[in-house]
Amino acid sequence: MLEIKNLHVRVEDEDTEILRGIDLAVPKGEVHAIMGPNGSGKSTLSYVIAGKDGYEVTDGSITWDGEDLLALSPDERAARGVFLAFQYPVEIPGVATLTFLRTAVNAVRKARGEKELNTADFMRLVREKAEALGVKQDMLKRGLNVGFSGGEKKRNEILQMALLEPTLCVLDETDSGLDIDALRIVSEGVNTLRGPERAMLVITHYQRLLNYIVPDRVHVLQEGRIVRSGGKELAEELERTGYAEFGEGKAA
């Protein structure tokens, strides 16, 4: 279970709090959605779970499987099953996608005490997963995310998720920049990973993605706090009324 308690976060060297007391619990086997307007703190929450530098946790805790995530480096979190699908995957020229995938898979396997994959086994695995997500072989030979379209970048994120087999998946605005076909492919990729051992946190601005990845719970994030929680019908309600109806900050 992912447990976030009274989480307060600000950007390092700045006074303004971005997250102002988040409480959230996502049990294994469930998919929770976090919805909120721009600037509500959605991406900050995803970065703090993954361990990005530049944020200061002033109060509260994040635990995964009972372990304090905040005490771990980003790679240690990845080894324990944490995975963030980035809203804006970084382009890294000179690092071939395939080389990166193999390095990542084996780093995580090694850290989990599993045997590293040899080239043949790794290639078989990549080919199988890539095909399911419509990731072409020539993409894998290119520099990591270099020259990829928005949709290709997101499919590449989900491919990494499929290869690394995380147990806690955080998807940050995975729907942004996707056309309807890409959205369907990516959602199917996510849905096949749903399972009793896996918790997922789907962060999105729009309800559209949740037609494809149907959540067990929906939480509305506004001005750094969760202002309302409910079932999947809450997402539909939000789509009709807009975010202004919720929480204290109605003036927005």
């Binding site: 361990g51 790679d75 979190r77 990845a78 990166f100 780093a107 690394l164």
Partner: peptide, 11 residues
């Protein structure tokens, strides 16, 4: 770039 790689498990 460093964070992206570390988030994928590279030390």
């Amino acid at each position: 770039m460093l964070f992206y790689l570390r988030a994928r498990g590279l030390d």
